[in-house]
Amino acid sequence: MFKTLKKYRIPYLFISPFFVLFLVFQLIPIIWTTFISFTEWKGLGSPVWVGLDNYRLMTQDYMVADAFWNTLLYWIAGIIGILLFALMIALCLNSSRLKFHKFFKTASFLPYVCASVAMGLIFGMLFDENAGLINEIIITFGGDRVPWLTSSAFSKIPVIILFNWRITPWFTIIILSGLLNISREYYEAATVDGANIVQQFFYITVPLLRNIMFFCMLTITVDTWKMFNESYILPGPGSSNTSLFQLIYQSAFKTFKLGYASALSVILILILLVISIVQFAIRRRQGEV
């Protein structure tokens, strides 16, 4: 054992920073969180063991239910919205018919560069019920004012729009890089065989993009389940658009219920774990087909 370490000390040394940091700043905190989740603790003094109380309270707390459903919605809306738009934009950018290619590509990436917090402040103003430009436009077209951030029904929409608006370009680039890797010869051969654009898309592009799409889905999953900035900066009434992670932050650092917040964190970790296992399982099955 020691000998192996000594013999291969250089590669081990090179990769060690990651593992040390992972241990100290991720693994230990997560184990510790699990411990705190069985206690009641205000941060000062020592934690009091309360067993499963925090988990029991969680099942009765409508704010947790709200946060869970909201985050689930953000996840689904993220997967569908982001992948759809990213794919469409990437296909356009990849098209040989598109002029000013470089301009479009550069400009459509800009949202990703903009800080979500700053954009959140801006979207908050644009979506303001009385003074916002969006409602003004809706009224010009004969509609009624929409209570974007002042009703539970609508308050999730600005959050979804902001999140998707900002993140889509990132996935556009990733998908585009996948498209660029598909050899043109496939399409040329298909054209010779008389396949139209739609057929080409479904029989060539989609199968060859599967890996990339899977990677995108995994990333969007993690990003949406730990969403914080967007819903934090665009609050709706009560917990109507609170994300799960935002609720954790608020329970921990606003009302200082660290035990309860930790229990929520444990649930968040479990959710991510389950989703990724399911995604990998589905993929393995597809891989075998």
Binding site: L218, S265, I269
Partner: peptide
């Protein structure tokens, strides 16, 4: 695999660390 874990989930102990 660690990409699937968010460091944010351990924010409370991380603060103490």
């Amino acid at each position: 695999a660690t990409m699937m874990i968010s460091a944010e989930a351990g924010a409370i102990p991380l603060f103490i660390i």
